[in-house]
């Protein structure tokens, strides 16, 4: 048993238990933040993507004991921000969503990109989401929606 303290969507939270529990399980089951999805459980698909200290990581392969003191942002936290709202609106407007399972991870990947590169090229976007698998859309509308967000959200990032 260990006590882990971290910031989750802007609030300081505590976790008590096995430090080898996967972050995705702590988020979904411990904190009821089910926006973060689990696809492969092996770091391959990006469905479980969150931001750790502003950087994109896959929460299915991170033990909660590795994030003491870190800042974690999930889709639930991001969507409350102007940047997150812009992304959500752009995904809707651009028709980027079919079944939706990959979308929280895609939005997190887009946010991670725009934080360091507010005016990405199409190629930049494709590279940034290259660790996120979508079984429905064929990616083009997702890429376009991220580019749309970067235009609509001018000044936000």
């Amino acid at each position: 048993m260990s006590k882990i303290k971290f910031t989750l969507n802007g609030k300081v939270v505590f976790y008590e238990g096995d430090p080898l529990r996967r972050l995705v399980d702590v988020l979904r089951e411990g904190f009821q933040l089910t926006g973060t999805k689990e696809g492969c459980g092996e770091g391959e698909c990006g469905a479980c993507s969150v931001l750790k200290n502003g950087k994109l990581v896959t929460s299915c392969i991170i033990p909660v004991g590795a994030i003491d003191g870190d800042d974690i942002v999930t889709i639930e936290g991001l969507r409350e921000t102007p940047q997150g709202q812009c992304l959500v609106e752009s995904f809707a407007e651009g028709g980027a969503v079919q079944c939706g399972f990959c979308i929280p991870g895609m939005v997190m990947a887009a946010q991670a990109l725009l934080l360091v590169n507010p005016h990405p090229t199409e190629e930049d976007v494709r590279v940034a989401i290259s660790g996120n698998i979508c079984r429905c859309t064929g990616y083009d509308l997702i890429v376009e929606s991220i580019l749309l967000a970067s235009r609509k959200g001018e000044g936000l990032w």
Binding site: D18, L20, R22, R28, G41, E42, I61, P63, A66
Partner: peptide, 18 residues
């Protein structure tokens, strides 16, 4: 943990056992 967590993963909602 990118090698270890995958090598000892057990499934959805289940903590890996080492």
């Amino acid at each position: 943990g990118t090698d270890l967590m995958v090598a000892y993963k057990r499934g959805v909602g289940i903590t890996p056992v080492f």
